[in-house]
Design a protein around this nucleic acid. Structure first.
Lengths: 293, 293
DNA sequence: GTCATTCGTTGACTTTAGTCAGGGAATTTT
DNA sequence: AAAATTCCCTGACTAAAGTCAACGAATGAC
């Protein structure tokens, strides 16, 4: 990483901070503290549990409680106890709340138009494209990849999404139980591991490593959430799994894949994997690959 | 302007706000209010008049006064009365103040590295390039270029900075009086003109046009403030000066430049200027360029 | 059934940010 | 020389943001 890159980011920050500051100032124009406006945005169309919103905004529980009460008094937010656990609350926007949020959106749009106003059509197009690029890469930079228990909440959510997708994409469908529960144990430390990729804490991908023999590990359960694709996340998961294999003194990794997953095959080839003969009896596998570490 | 462009800006704002928020939070890690940290940054290496800093930060004079006193009590800032007008104060960083600002810079660098950390070299290069593009275009949208009297406050400030820079960069130094005061008259309407570029009202660059003959105008005094460089401002100033030449029925513009100003030469070439033989007796000129409009 | 824990609320704070009116000293205008 | 203006400081205020501890209700663990 060069110093000039750091310089560039600093200077980018300075310029963009002005824009963000202008946005915040414009939000204050509606006579409501910024904290309340932020919460109004964070509550989605369908509402959300209070606790999730509180942690998302990073607020103290007492402070948060007061903000919610203020918005409720203004008739913008409806608070209902969660029927499953009556300690918990669900927040949802009322019709007035939705209207209010639309008004904030309009302010934001005005500001966006002001940004674009001084530019000709070509420059506008370049700005929009560059913003998309920054956004994609900055999102990619916020990804963390770490080992997690395969029976944890995040792992189970990823696996459920993965199996559902395989069932939809494989010609012959997919039965997750074909492998058997014994597989899970093999993907557990110390001999194996299960990695979860997260963006800002939200699980968006996974991959597993299980031992084959003293020299070889197998990569399984590679999956990336649809909304996080196209940003090199799979490549990074693969590299992380290879590092885990190396850490276990394996100098060879193998994997299999189905013919329906064409982009996965291309990714494996690009990462240095070479086709080999069938090495397992996975009924869903059409191709087998190997890479020497 | 399309709705999708506005959507893109909104989504860009969301992502980038996270980064800016992280930066601000990291600044708070040094146990000092953000307002004080901002002032610490705004005071340059050489200090600055209090009034200029106050308006730059957009603060109330009472509030500003308290921030300054707090920093002075911490031994970070030295306040001295302006000898020319003893109502005014000059603020300058002490050695401790410089050290403190360096510590903030380090935090900022850490954050930049964290942004880049998850990316490979190619992605880093793409991110830096896209950031540069966003910065250029967002700054460009805020720039105004307009003719101003050459003896106005903004013009004089730009010229003083320009001459000081030439004196520092030319091997032989630079004497602004060598050209003679007659030059100024030639850069005045209707035959010539003097353009000042401003960002949010702050002068950040200039350029002058003076008549050479019935077909030809000469471009002089091209300067962009160091903090505004690398964002295509010089190119826009040049284009604006060419438009002024065209408006005066000149179909040819000429200019000269010193060998020390290598980036200027590259910019002229890229803008369509071709080297020609010496056309004047400017003792500081090493290269001469011409462009047909 | 008891105990511990979790979720959210409330009261009592502090700090930061910002505003406004007044005033003293220096400077400029008349 | 007087009057007006400019620059900065001070005191008195307000709103927003955030922290902390105590507490009640609901739930889960044993």
């Amino acid at each position: 990483m060069t110093q000039s890159a750091v310089e560039r980011i600093r200077s980018f920050n300075r310029v963009v901070t002005l824009g963000v500051g202008a946005l915040n100032d414009s939000y204050l124009g509606r006579g409501r503290p910024l904290g309340e406006a932020r919460l109004l945005f964070e509550i989605g169309e369908d509402g959300a549990p209070a606790g999730a919103l509180r942690t998302a905004l990073g607020l103290d529980s007492g402070y948060f409680s007061r903000i919610v009460r203020s918005l409720a008094r203004q008739g913008l937010v409806a608070v209902t106890p969660d029927p499953a656990d009556r300690r918990r609350r669900r927040l949802a926007l009322t019709a007035a709340g939705r209207a209010e949020r639309a008004a904030y959106d309009a302010l934001s749009d005005d500001l966006a138009r002001a940004w674009l106003g001084g530019l000709d059509a070509g420059e506008q197009a370049r700005l929009v494209a560059a913003m998309a690029e920054v956004e994609t890469l900055m999102t990619a930079a916020r990804v963390t990849i770490a080992p997690e228990p395969i029976d944890g909440a995040a792992a189970r959510a990823c696996l459920a999404a993965y199996f559902a997708e395989l069932a939809a994409r494989f010609e012959a469908g997919f039965d997750p139980d074909a492998g058997g529960a014994a597989e899970d144990a093999a993907m557990t430390p110390p001999d194996g591991c299960f990695l979860v990729a997260r963006i800002d804490g939200r699980p968006v991908g996974c991959g597993a490593l299980k031992p084959l023999d003293a020299q070889t590990a197998e990569i399984k359960r590679m999956w990336v959430a649809p909304e996080a694709r196209g940003r090199g996340l799979a490549r990074r998961l693969l590299a992380a799994l290879e590092a885990e294999a190396r850490a276990r003194n394996r100098h060879r990794v193998r994997l299999d894949t189905n013919r329906a997953l064409t982009t996965a095959q291309a990714m494996y080839r690009k990462a240095g994997y070479r086709p080999i003969a069938r090495f397992n009896d996975n009924p869903y596998a059409d191709f087998w690959f190997e890479k020497t570490l």
